[in-house]
């Protein structure tokens, strides 16, 4: 029996290559909840009803848990202008105790801030990336608010959208949570003062 050995090994390696790509696709889906997405439809008149965003630390993949569990991302905060006119808006991250930045469009040399101002044309959608840091208390099991994303009409000052962002850790036991509440609450107060100075 004659076997072309190199062809056989090449075929095996080809399958390894295909499997790795597909396997990575499945892994990507498995850790997709590390990043959040939300859409707010604004009409320029009344405040839009929006679902809140909840990050569960337990959804983080192992590499993220090990290396960078305290930085999270809303990859796509979409603001859709459903009114008939262009809307000049301000998107602001408020009540965040740690660093938060709002990024629109391609990265620039200047680091973005916690406030973005711009105009959304009628029928168009603005995509905002929200990068934020978590404080120690956000790693407890209890669902805790990290901050709020507010959309304000620059001309009238009216609030057009309001999205609360929460963090929780469903993998942490209640016992551990109870133990960690006291020190982290103290830390929270301290961090709150710090955040106002940053802004």
């Amino acid at each position: 029996m004659f076997i072309k050995k190199s062809y056989l090994s090449s075929l095996m390696l080809l399958i390894v290559g295909i499997s790795f790509a597909l396997g990575f696709g499945y892994y990507k889906n498995a850790v997709a909840k590390e990043q959040a997405a939300a859409t707010v439809a604004i009409n320029g008149e009344s405040i839009a009803a929006t679902q809140s965003i909840v990050f569960d630390i337990a959804d983080q993949g192992m590499p993220k848990k090990w290396l960078q569990p305290n930085q999270i991302l809303i990859a796509s905060y979409l603001i859709k202008n459903e009114s008939k006119n262009p809307l000049a808006i301000q998107v602001e991250a408020v009540d965040f105790v740690k660093q938060v930045v709002l990024e629109v469009g391609s990265p620039d040399i200047k680091k973005p801030s916690a406030i973005y101002m711009g105009t959304v044309e009628s029928g168009k959608t603005l995509r905002v990336k929200v990068k934020m840091d978590l404080a120690d208390q956000h790693f407890s099991q209890t669902k805790q608010q990290i901050g709020v994303l507010q959309i304000v009409d620059i001309q009238t000052g009216a609030l057009l959208g309001n999205t609360s962002v929460y963090a929780m850790n469903s993998s942490q036991s209640l016992d551990q949570d109870q133990k960690s509440v006291t020190p982290s609450t103290v830390h929270e107060t301290h961090e709150s003062h710090g955040s106002h100075e940053e802004k």
Binding site: S9, S10, L11, M12, L13, L14, I15, V16, G17, I18, S19, F20, A21, L22, G23, F24, G25, Y26, K28, N29
Partner: peptide, 29 residues
């Protein structure tokens, strides 16, 4: 140690198939 060509092109095929079977890895990897 490991012949790169079959893995390279196997990965390329897998990459093109991934949106249909698993989920695109275009920005993930």
């Amino acid at each position: 140690s490991v012949n790169p060509v079959p893995i390279r092109y196997g990965f390329f095929v897998g990459y093109l198939l991934s949106p249909f079977l698993a989920g695109s890895i275009a920005c993930a990897l």
